[in-house]
Design a protein around this nucleic acid. Structure first.
Lengths: 231, 231
DNA sequence: TCCAGTATAATTGTATACAATCATACAATA
DNA sequence: TATTGTATGATTGTATACAATTATACTGGA
């Protein structure tokens, strides 16, 4: 029996869960700036709850890496440095490769079908410059891949990393012209999986991540961070 | 300024910190069995604290993967399946490789010195069958490697995984005769790092993990889990 | 005997009160 | 002026009371 599903639902209806999800969204969306201090009472009042669920949500956010708690002092929004982003992409590159290889062996018909639809639809949005939808499909493509690898461990790791760089990625993908190129790479990975060539899928997924990172750098990752640091 | 150090210290003197460390130790040492339910009041009374710090410690342990919390129900010691262990070792294999490669570029003189001492001392304990000390040195060797890679992200990931399989590893390393072999592999990795050959270090560390896993399987990982499942 | 329903107990979820710690402002001293 | 000490306020840490939920035992009926 899988409690995760129930958990996810219940979380949204428990106060701690609501606080957790709200804060997470706010942090990822950039509502709170880096190193900003989150005060328990302030957050509590804003969401209409007491400090207890807020504190517990803080502990969760801390281990998710979104905030850092300093004892007797406060909770601060975690800053991701330029090097952190680079490291994450290098790590993700390896893990996405492994994920693609495993997915080749374990992907279901339904997952394959959704991937094909994903790539097909993305082609349309790419041609018409619908960046928003493109980003959405890109996220979904990788999520399918994570689920298809048949490893809770790897899936969990990759989802964590994926979320971790969401803040950065959100800013760059929309401003970049990488959409079409990225989708072509997705298609190639899909083809490799369909043909049952795990090694190729691994290499392609590997390269896909590195390309994504290099594109990000080219499009001004540095500037974003320089900007963030000035304040 | 690095707050981590202060944090670590303060944690031990705050109630939540004490609870957290104690529970973690107890879970890893096997005091609590898999799927055992941890009750807030019971833990609290045992440690002489109220439920509040216990609950917060629970949230931390949950995201560390040591327990699973089901809303309105309880906290349960996480079970690691045989496949989980296998997946973790495959993932670790890749990451330890990357870590060794990066360490080649960033390791300090002090870290190198400690590694040399580690390997030298381990040789002595291996010859005399001191399995306890050998396990300790093995842990330390990898910790140095993690620190030497100069990536907080990778270090954090590897330490998490390392701890995750500690429960399993503790049971197998002591009963296995892998100690000497493992130390030889450490020495080879160290030599590669010293000679500045990052690629080689990566391959060796990679292989080192796979060997560790294969040895574990050979020495009855299956039996341990079969045993664990019967109850 | 078996099952459904209900009452009771046990457990987790949340709010609040109080204690401990930390930050700040200000005054006293050199 | 600079610095140290102290008082005050703000913030986090913990304990406890109460609410909500879940598990268990028991009863009544078929």
């Amino acid at each position: 029996m899988n409690y995760d599903v129930k958990r996810e639902v219940t979380d949204k209806y428990s106060l701690r869960g609501r606080v957790f999800h709200k804060l997470r969204e706010d942090i990822l969306s950039g509502k709170y700036e880096e190193n900003e201090e989150l005060k328990e009472v302030a957050i509590g009042e804003e969401l209409g709850v007491s400090r207890t669920p807020v504190r517990e949500a803080f502990r969760q956010l801390e281990l998710e890496g979104l905030i850092q708690i300093i004892p007797n002092k406060g909770a601060y929004v975690t800053g991701i440095t330029e090097k952190d982003v680079q490291d994450i992409y290098m790590i993700r590159s390896l893990l996405e490769g492994l994920c693609a290889k495993w997915a080749t062996e374990h992907i279901t018909k339904e997952q394959l079908a959704e991937m094909e639809e994903n790539v097909y639809l993305a082609k349309f949005h790419a041609e018409n410059g619908h960046l928003e939808q493109l980003a959405e499909l890109d996220n979904r493509f990788h999520d399918i891949l994570y689920e298809a690898c048949n490893s809770k461990m790897l899936e969990h790791q990759l989802k964590d990393f994926h979320q971790y760089v969401l803040r950065v990625r959100k800013k760059t993908l929309a401003s970049a012209s990488r959409g079409p190129k990225s989708n072509q790479e997705h298609e190639a990975i899909l083809e490799a999986i369909k043909s049952g060539d795990g090694e190729l899928a691994q290499q392609l997924a590997n390269r896909h991540m590195i390309n994504a990172y290099e594109n990000m750098v080219k499009n001004g990752l540095h500037e974003i961070y320089a900007q963030g640091r000035t304040k």
